[in-house]
């Protein structure tokens, strides 16, 4: 259950992202480079509980989608065998990402070694409102 207690807004990112119940990404504080870098570190696949790197990726997409460092990281993940789950997550919200970033994400995901990722990327591309992304799967 969601609890809107104000004290949650002062805690470090890990302490918020580890909670079993939902905490909005906005609760992480201002979208500063420090927060971006902290979140990038928290996306490491070996961090437990594994919801933390997932939620960190999600908050990067929500809060830092225009950031070149984040865009580069997301694109690199499409070929990383340790990160298909994070890529699936990002593909699920591709329509909320800036088009150039979504385009790079879908393009990279179509070439993913993970069948689950490439199939999801194809589905996302086919249904995309952006012509540039649909064109990735249109003959």
């Amino acid at each position: 259950m969601l609890f809107l207690f104000s004290h949650a807004f002062a805690a470090p990112a890990f302490d918020l992202l580890k909670l079993r119940d939902p905490v909005p990404c906005a609760a992480l504080g201002e979208a500063t480079p420090v927060l971006r870098d902290e979140l990038l570190l928290l996306t490491a696949p070996d961090i437990l509980p594994s919801s933390v790197p997932m939620r960190a990726a999600d908050c990067l997409a929500e809060r830092f989608a225009e950031d070149p460092a984040v865009q580069a990281a997301f694109t690199a993940w499409t070929l990383d065998p340790a990160r298909p789950g994070q890529v699936l997550l990002l593909l699920g919200r591709a329509d909320t990402l800036p088009e150039p970033m979504a385009l790079a994400l879908v393009r990279g995901s179509l070439a993913s070694p993970s069948a689950r990722v490439s199939e999801k990327a194809r589905s996302v591309a086919e249904l995309s409102a952006a012509a540039s992304i649909r064109a990735l799967v249109t003959p």
């Binding site: 996306t43 696949p45 594994s50 919801s51 790197p53 997932m54 939620r55 990726a57 065998p81 340790a82 990160r83 298909p84 789950g85 994070q86 699936l88 997550l89 993970s114 689950r116």
Partner: peptide
């Protein structure tokens, strides 16, 4: 399921 499976989706 995806959040539980984590970054590697497994």
């Amino acid at each position: 399921w995806l959040v539980h499976a984590g970054p590697d989706a497994a």
